[in-house]
């Protein structure tokens, strides 16, 4: 099992400034999954609860001279502490080195102990070099790697309808306030391009309806709901028409997911997965200076849906 590559400056800044901070908001430990062509960060994919987050990069988006080999079709996966990863990336910048090598190694922490796996960051400057060993877990078993692979494939199973989320900071301000009212958030997406975020308790029902958003996938003509005078009536009509999906998610999960704005997405989409199995948030990034989607990186969040019986 071997892995060695050089992180590019762009790769360091993508990880250090954008993706690692966003992932740190979800949890401290995450999976890193390396394949022949991709580098993938995954959160909570091997357990059912919690926000699943999956960021996938083409190897060229982060690395050059990328070399990987393993008996499991050149696939390697392990868990890493994001705080340590972030610290290693940060100090590599201050080194002003010309090349940052990342390598999978086994070392003995002390002579008496068994060798432990590390991800070693070696930045070579003009006069000095800094080597940082970030401890990682033992490599995942074949079965666990397969689980990660399934999770990756599941994300490709997109909802039939996705609507483009309004400005994330605006949504964040709203949700920060809704959070005080209740801890279950109802999210509804219609095929007309409407997004409803609502909190309902015994005393109050409060929410926001964003209308006429961009729709990806199956869309419908909104004329059938125009007669309805208020947001709740419009949503009810849309649900009756089977042109909307509505699910309940944990407010805590949703607020955590909105920290995705740290990755600076150019477009964010929201949809309900088939069979109302989860709420999916999908983020796109443009090739700098254009409005073309950069397919070399992608980010998806999957929020578990609460059983309506529970709330």
């Amino acid at each position: 099992m071997k892995f060695k590559a050089f992180l590019t400056d762009h790769g360091v800044s993508l990880l250090e400034r954008r993706f690692v901070p966003a992932f740190e908001k979800i949890g401290k430990i995450c999976h890193i999954y390396l394949t022949r062509d991709h580098v993938i960060l995954l959160h909570n994919v091997l357990n059912a609860d919690g926000v699943q987050a999956i960021a996938q990069f083409n190897k060229e988006a982060l690395f050059e001279e990328y070399r990987i080999s393993s008996q499991n079709e050149d696939r390697i996966a392990f868990t890493i502490d994001l705080t340590l990863l972030s610290r290693a990336l940060k100090s590599s910048i201050s080194m002003d080195g010309d090349k940052l090598q990342v390598k999978l190694v086994k070392k003995r922490p002390t002579l008496s102990e068994r060798p432990m796996p590390y991800l070693t960051f070696e930045s070579k400057g003009y006069r000095s070099a800094v080597v940082q060993d970030v401890p990682i877990s033992q490599p995942l078993t074949r079965a666990d790697v397969q689980e990660l692979q399934y999770a990756l494939e599941m994300v490709q199973d997109l909802p039939r309808t996705l609507v483009q989320m309004p400005d994330l900071l605006q949504v964040q301000t709203l949700v920060e306030r809704l959070k005080n009212v209740g801890d279950v958030l109802e999210v509804a997406v219609t095929q007309y391009g409407d997004l409803h975020l609502q909190v309902t308790t015994t005393m109050v029902s409060i929410g926001s309806e964003f209308r006429k958003l961009r729709v990806l996938g199956v869309r419908a003509d909104s004329s059938t709901i125009e007669g309805a005078s208020n947001p709740s009536a419009r949503l009810e009509q849309a649900l009756r028409n089977r042109e909307a999906s509505s699910v309940q998610v944990s407010m805590k999960h949703f607020t955590k997911s909105l920290q995705c704005h740290l990755t600076k997405p150019d477009a964010s989409f929201c949809g309900v997965s088939p069979n109302d199995s989860c709420l999916l948030l999908m983020f796109q990034y443009y090739v700098p200076g254009t409005r073309q989607t950069d397919n070399s990186l992608s980010l998806h969040y999957r929020l578990p849906v609460l059983d309506p019986g529970v709330s």
Partner: peptide, 16 residues
């Protein structure tokens, strides 16, 4: 309570 802003966003609440 209801507030509709310029880009068709509506914030609404019903308090018992």
């Amino acid at each position: 309570l209801k507030l509709v802003d310029a880009n068709d966003t509506c914030i609404y609440a019903e308090m018992r």
